[in-house]
Design a protein around this nucleic acid. Structure first.
Lengths: 184, 184
DNA sequence: GCGTAACCGGACTCTGTCGTCCGTTTTTCG
DNA sequence: CGAAAAACGGACGACAGAGTCCGGTTACGC
């Protein structure tokens, strides 16, 4: 790994850039300019482009970090006994994360077939297991996939972004979860 | 009105611009450039700006036309006896329209507080009546407003846009409708 | 037909953003 | 310490889209 080892200052700046990008994406979505990210990180924007050849590469880096966090949520949920409860618990956790981070779903869908493909595939595979279990337990309708769940929850929360009521997203996620419950 | 009467060619071009804009917004969303709209309309883009001082004004014009169509749907639905059925029927109609027109929900939310305010208010008032009736009939959960319904249905359909399955949006709307149904 | 007012569209400006270049500064290591 | 390698960032280029201007053209009333 010593070949790819960065100099100390470079390493520090890289982290600052990633932090600044994550913050700004969370606050205002992926459309913030690279200049602004660099400004918040306290570096010139050329420094950003030295580490990430492209703005999309930077977005991917931030998003894949967040996907890893989501993977943690699913793994926790999979440990739960009650399959239906596990599913709902994961959705609420993921919902909290999306509600806190405006750029998450946007970035997730934006860099669809790029560097995050493997992380995304891993996440989806885990969610699929969660879903399958919930379906077998009769707690979840059978005609939904991991992508469907991500999309429905993600878009519902995005729909609540501008609202004055900061908790609106919870009602929306509640509606979607009710809709996803198996019909009896 | 003769003071605002346009010359014949100007009138013709205005209609072409509106048609072209509606087509392109439907196909690719509101982000198509004014140049492209003008090109499809067969005019220079200055001609577009002569009629609509701003791109947003053009979007508003297109959207308000579509809102009027939606208003027609609600009025039809309000004539229905069964309040729950009326609500669902409207949602499916509106869904068809959104699914056909990628720019609709985008434009609807984009020009939020602009020239379409009155049309939007009228639509919302009608939807509210539809909702109220459905709630009284016990066919709809009580904690949703017209805005909530528009948002949930609109975002669910937008989530289905890229999909290879052109009918995916129907499943998503189905999930949302199930979620909106009153819990018993 | 003809003059005028309305209209047209190509060329232009302005702004904002991504991405590159290169002279200067900083770290690192012998 | 001193030199080489790495990194820095301001200046620059390129591009795209919104909105403006003006010289030429077209419709319309007389």
């Amino acid at each position: 790994m010593s070949t790819t080892q960065l100099r100390a200052d470079a390493q520090r700046n890289l982290e600052r850039v990633l932090d600044a990008a994550a913050e700004l994406f969370a606050e205002r979505g992926c459309d913030v300019s690279v200049d602004e990210i660099a400004r918040r990180a306290g570096v010139g924007h050329a420094t950003v482009f030295r580490r990430f050849p492209t703005k999309d590469a930077l977005i991917s880096a931030v998003v894949s970090k967040q996907i890893r966090e989501l993977i943690g949520f699913v793994e926790t949920a999979l440990a739960e006994e009650d399959a239906g409860e596990a599913f709902r618990s994961f959705v609420w956790h993921a919902g909290e994360m999306h509600a806190r981070d405006r750029g998450l779903h946007e970035g997730y869908t934006r860099c669809a077939m790029r560097d995050v493909a493997e992380a995304k595939a891993e996440l989806n595979a885990l969610i699929d297991r969660l879903i399958e279990r919930a379906q077998e337990a009769g707690a979840l309708r059978r005609d939904v996939s991991a992508d469907d769940v991500s999309t429905l929850v993600g878009t519902a929360i995005r729909g609540a972004y501008g609202a004055s009521d900061a908790e609106l997203w919870r009602r929306y996620v509640g509606v979607v979860l009710d809709g996803l419950a198996a019909r009896g």
